[in-house]
Amino acid sequence: QEPLTVSMLAAAPLHKQKQMIGERLYPLIYNVHTQLAGKITGMLLEIDNSELLYMLESPESLNAKVEEALAVLIQAHQTMEEEQMKV
């Protein structure tokens, strides 16, 4: 599969650009975090497209971002659990 380029994205309407990047990100994340791939991909897609394109080409920065997203998800889940315990 040829790498996703800026010109390919620029040719697409804005709302389609996130879907296009997501289709590339998802399989990479699925390999590492199968159950959370959809959630993590959704979180990363809020990052601006230029940084996302860079991450698609550099696995270590993608992995770092994925681990950050995972940590945020776990933190949010723990906070929610604590809130529920307080009630």
Partner: peptide
């Protein structure tokens, strides 16, 4: 440092991704 990632982001639904067999 605080992460800028949003845990409530909308989940992404892949269209073209086929689950590996």
């Amino acid at each position: 440092r605080k992460s800028t990632l949003n845990p409530n982001a909308k989940e992404f639904n892949p269209r073209s991704f086929s689950q590996p067999k």
